[in-house]
């Protein structure tokens, strides 16, 4: 087996009485797009800063490509960071920002100019070389920050919520661009985000963090379909609790008792529960059907709006049968622990 790009063992970091990182183990493969997902305060950014070397751990080790870098300062680590606030040098123009790392490493002027221009072309910013960061839009600054880090050809690129400050459209555009750049450059990406959709769509693997610990590491599909803990089940997508199992909202089928609204015929392995429609929430592509089950539990089912919205077969107060396939059920290890997003409407 090849050496991990990043290997972390029992990493801990305390700030006063608060333990921001409380024992983390991670192995991130070479060329992997790896995300750390969690709510604010979960310790994901601190782990990133420990990998970069901005913080010294209270305990534990950080290895990069098999080399223990735990006690090395940032300028001796072969990683580069894209900061949440971009951290562009305001007194330098775009070209000088991008060539900063090369200049520090004494790359000859002609070569570093050429490489900086090439990096700017890679993020579609040719012609912007002479601008100051203040004269750029948020998306452009983001791309300068990316070029400034990538031009050094680091083994690992660390990205701290890099898309957090962008509006939705730009965000989606940049997500696609990031993924393309990562594939092209073949660099290991360690990507910190609190946006579960972003983590799922971009990553090869995701580590879900909560309260300084890793809850689960897996591929997006593993996390979504087989969440290991109640926290993961609630933070990555939403889930319904039915008895002692959980089911994702889009896996629930709502049938009228007279058969109205059935999208999929009954089959083997189906489970049922009876209930009353409590509310319908129209959300464009989908409608959320809130159903109060006879057991007293409330579940949310997603129904695709294949027809016009006023064709919705159910009305609040209707008696319905909620149906799902047993293969879509999952259990979590710590079922007793309340999961944050369970009762909230699906997002």
């Amino acid at each position: 087996m090849s050496v991990s790009a990043v290997r972390i063992r029992d990493l801990r970091k305390g700030f006063g009485a608060v333990e921001a990182v409380a024992g983390v183990d991670l192995d991130i493969g070479d060329g992997e797009f790896f995300s750390m997902l969690g709510p604010s305060g979960s310790g994901k950014t601190t782990v990133l800063r420990l990998i970069a070397g901005f913080e010294r751990p209270t305990a534990g080790t950080v290895e990069l490509a098999g080399r223990d870098v735990t006690s090395l300062p940032p300028f001796e680590r072969d990683v580069n960071t894209v900061f949440q606030d971009y951290a562009l040098f305001p007194h330098l123009d775009v070209l000088r920002n991008v060539e900063y790392g090369l200049k520090v490493r004494r790359v000859p002027r002609a070569e570093r100019r050429a490489r900086a221009r090439e990096a700017l072309r890679g993020v579609r910013l040719e012609g912007m070389e002479a601008r100051r960061p203040a004269e750029l839009s948020g998306g452009q600054r983001q791309r300068v920050a990316l070029a400034r880090a990538l031009v050094n050809e680091p083994r690992v690129l660390l990205l701290d919520e890099p898309l957090g400050a962008l509006d939705l459209r730009l965000r989606e555009e940049m997500q696609a661009e990031l993924k393309a750049i990562q594939r092209r450059a073949g660099i290991t990406f360690v990507f910190v985000t609190h946006d579960q959709e972003e983590a799922l769509t971009l990553s090869d693997r995701v580590a879900v963090m909560d309260r300084g610990r890793i809850e689960q590491v897996g591929t997006p599909a593993q996390l979504y379909e087989r969440p290991a803990t109640a926290f993961v089940a609630g933070f990555v997508g939403t889930s319904n609790r039915v008895g002692d199992v959980r089911v994702r909202p889009e896996k629930l089928q709502v049938d009228g008792l007279d058969g109205v609204g059935t999208e999929r015929g009954p089959g083997q392995g189906d489970r049922h529960a009876l209930g009353t429609v409590a509310d319908l929430v129209y959300a464009g592509a989908l409608t959320r059907v809130h159903v109060d089950l006879e057991s007293g539990e409330r579940v949310v089912a997603l129904r695709q709006n294949l027809a016009a919205s006023d064709d919705m077969p159910h009305r609040p107060g209707d008696r319905v049968r909620v149906r799902w396939h047993s293969a879509h059920e999952f259990r979590v290890a710590d079922a007793g622990r309340g999961d944050a997003a369970e009762a909230a409407p699906a997002s």
Partner: peptide
Amino acid sequence: LPDSLLDASGDLGAR
């Protein structure tokens, strides 16, 4: 002066 600028400089290899 944002701390991140100092971090960024070190991150890019500057002592």
